[in-house]
Nucleic acid binder design. Structure first.
Lengths: 210, 210
DNA sequence: GTCATCATGTAAGCCGTTACATGATTGC
DNA sequence: GCAATCATGTAACGGCTTACATGATGAC
């Protein structure tokens, strides 16, 4: 799951570990605040496997680093950054290790997104977050598999539900659970519908008459 | 979390490990299919700590083990539990290790239910499932703490949300996330309301005027 | 010059998993 | 007798956490 998150984010931007973690935090809300203790080893591992690579320079965008965006301070900081670059102390090459994704990494990302197993509730939102890397058809397949998975869970629940000894809290809990599942299915239905629309648009409207 | 589940279930019924696991499965739907590899060591540990104890006999209820239930079979099993060798049918004393909760275990259960930290999304449903072991006031406090936690998450989301570069999938994901949170808050509100009603009933309707 | 923040990393440990090993009971 | 299920356990490992250690940079 961590791999997916890292590859997905690096596919959008070159980033260093610290920044990567921040992005993860507000990516989906997602309750996904990975700790450094797992992030850095993961980065090292991915680099060793050739899926990402350390690119020494340019943190991608002009980093608006501090809230006190007073133009004076900002320009001073920018000036300092250049000076330091000139003198070889440049922030961006020294302490920081900026990573970028490789072609192999991109392939791996698609592979992770295409995994037929959609039962992991934590990972699925991540896969949706980065699913722009899939073809419309594969995206559709992903959503439909997930929908089937959830539908199956609904069915399972309704089967096992009828044991007599349930107190009010248990019942309430089950109702909540059921409602959440139903909402998720409905959400997937909207995703599926819009993906079908995209596919219909891409295909010749007349269709291919065999 | 496992401890909570085990103690909660054993507080309802004496059970052996195998059965315990099955109950966990359909307790809340809850995506909580604990494996034996963690269940049995946990039982051993809890027993060592005196929170549960092995009670050799009586699987609690007449176990409707096979479709050919019939009161006869049930009574034979109950009988056999005491004098097993007589019929050779009873499977309730030999291989099985039936556990029951101790007073210390019950205290521990209440302690776990009362833990002020309500941020664990997996554990919270379990706590609701067993919250009948709390006083109405403590139950109310539990629900309210959880509501506050979720409200805080909502707030957090709405703050971090406004970074420009979000594609359609990310946006959809966030909407889903937000809807799920809102639904959960609404659910807690119903729990809170009904708990308040209980408290109002218990308290003298005149209240204590100060 | 000192403190907060940014930044990277290691070590130990927790909590759970899968895989493996064993054996009793029952149906056929 | 043999297979399926019930039942208990151990061993190895996985993924992530917390705590710890280190150091650079920038604000004041």
């Amino acid at each position: 799951m961590l791999d997916l998150a890292i590859l997905g984010l690096l596919d959008e931007n070159d980033l260093h570990g610290y920044e990567l973690r921040k992005r993860l935090g507000d990516l989906v809300g997602l309750r996904l605040a990975i700790s450094f203790g797992s992030l850095y080893p993961a980065l090292t591992r991915l680099e060793k496997h050739g899926l990402i690579t350390a690119v020494s320079a340019t943190p991608v965008e002009a980093p608006p680093r501090s809230p006190m965006s007073g133009s004076l301070a900002g320009e001073l900081a920018a000036f300092g950054a250049q000076r330091r670059a000139a003198t070889g102390i440049a922030r961006g090459t020294r302490g920081k290790k900026v990573y970028g994704i490789t072609d192999a990494g991109r392939r791996r990302l698609v592979e992770l997104l295409s995994d037929p197993d959609v039962s992991d509730d934590r990972a699925f939102p991540l896969r949706v977050a980065f699913c722009r890397n899939l073809t419309p058809a594969d995206r559709l397949a992903l959503f439909e598999r997930r929908r089937a998975e959830l539908a199956q869970r609904v069915e399972q629940r309704s089967r096992a539900q009828s044991d007599g000894r349930v107190n009010a809290y248990l019942r309430s809990l089950r109702e909540r659970d059921h409602a959440a599942l139903a909402a998720d299915v409905a959400w997937l239905d909207t995703l599926i519908a819009s993906e079908r629309a995209v596919l219909a648009e891409t295909d010749p409207p007349g269709g291919s008459p065999t």
